[in-house]
Design a protein around this nucleic acid. Structure first.
Lengths: 223, 223
DNA sequence: ACCTGAACACCGTTCAAGT
DNA sequence: ACCTGAACACCGTTCAAGT
């Protein structure tokens, strides 16, 4: 800080009073996404929701990408919070993975928001830090722990992307898609898909998620 | 077929000669994506590339989503081709997973195209059929085989999404992002990220992919 | 110091009219 | 039967001008 600096509040009290605040803008953006989906999130609609001109947004977010990264960072709030005592490392990994999944599911199109951005904010960093930490306690080298953390996160993102895509379809054309799929499933051409159809079209995403995560965790045990 | 139907070629020979063909349009769209990225793929730019008016595209693709699904389906061509003889099931799974990864990597933003659509075309269906088939031969129930196939595909999509995001960053702001990340990594606040940084910022995606896939395959062995 | 108003260069989608 | 031309209702981003 230079000798001419004044306190932030004194600085802010000069000039026009601030009409827009970044945290409120991020919250409003997430609300818009929850209501109408990510495709309907528009700089113009967000400006209207904040009762501000579009240009004003660009004083606080350099681009729409910056806004989306701030939204992803906000979604992860609390995901790295302290773990209950007495959990095995398996339970700790399961708990952390479940938290990220729930954080993405909490907002409509949350996985798409997260997958499309690269936040280096504190929520994102401390989540990865915590997950790598738990894995390192399993006698994994830093490299193996990091790679495993990446594997887990990639699985969660891919899985939740699919889950929310199914949710979006459910509101409109899911029955049509299912019929189309069923019609395409000639048992002669796709013998295994015929046997897989029930599982493929089931909505037991909790079960699917647990299956995939357990596969990864079991693979870890053999290291 | 009704008694009044004629052969397709006879039908097509009546009226104006067809200016636009769907497979050529899909190929041109993939070329546009390869050149300028998915964000630059526009119905208008595609129409211009095909020397056609925008409205014409909508006679062949109901929406842009339909076009993207056709692109995803095209990307998977060959992925379900016959497997070499004499591979163990582990090697078969590794081969199939590697094929999907390479198919997504072959086109710029390929993972984003794939993740954003739901094709029920023959390439997509036969890929899943083949993967489920290989897994069923491992004494897995249809349900377990299907869930495992989903797990593998979700991991591949999540992983490749990340890999191509890093590629996109590399062409412009990757050094800036890395500096930003390094600056944020206070070892006091994020003790595990400090140890993870080298792996986290490495570009050994082949190694990361192999690690993740092996984790899943090893987990399978314990079933 | 912060916001307004207006513009620039685009989008996806639709549809009457042509041939 | 298939395509053109033109429109509708939007976009993200920029920037001079106001207060």
């Amino acid at each position: 800080m230079g000798p001419t600096s004044t306190s932030p509040s004194a600085q802010r009290s000069r000039g026009r009073p601030r009409k827009m605040a970044v945290p409120e803008a991020v919250a409003a953006a997430l609300r818009l996404v929850d209501e109408d989906g990510l495709d309907s999130l528009t700089m113009r609609r967000l400006a209207a929701a904040l009762d501000v001109q579009v240009g004003t947004l660009y004083r606080h977010f350099a681009t729409k990408q910056t806004l989306l990264a701030a939204m992803a960072e906000e979604m992860l709030a609390g995901c790295a919070g302290p773990l209950p005592d007495g959990l095995t490392w398996r339970e700790q990994v399961t708990e952390l993975a479940g938290r990220l999944r729930m954080a993405l599911l909490r907002h409509r199109d949350g996985a798409r928001v997260y997958a499309g951005t690269h936040s280096v904010g504190p929520n994102t960093l401390s989540y990865t830090d915590t997950l790598v930490g738990v894995l390192r306690e399993t006698c994994l080298s830093p490299e193996a722990a990091t790679r495993t953390a990446l594997t887990i996160v990639h699985f969660i993102v891919g899985h939740t992307l699919e889950e929310q895509a199914a949710q979006a379809l459910a509101e409109s054309e899911l029955p049509a898609t299912l019929t189309l799929l069923h019609a395409a499933l000639d048992p002669g051409t796709y013998p295994n898909l015929a046997a897989a159809e029930a599982t493929l079209t089931s909505t037991d995403f909790v079960g699917h998620f647990a299956h995939g995560l357990n596969l990864i965790i079991k693979g870890l045990a053999g290291e």
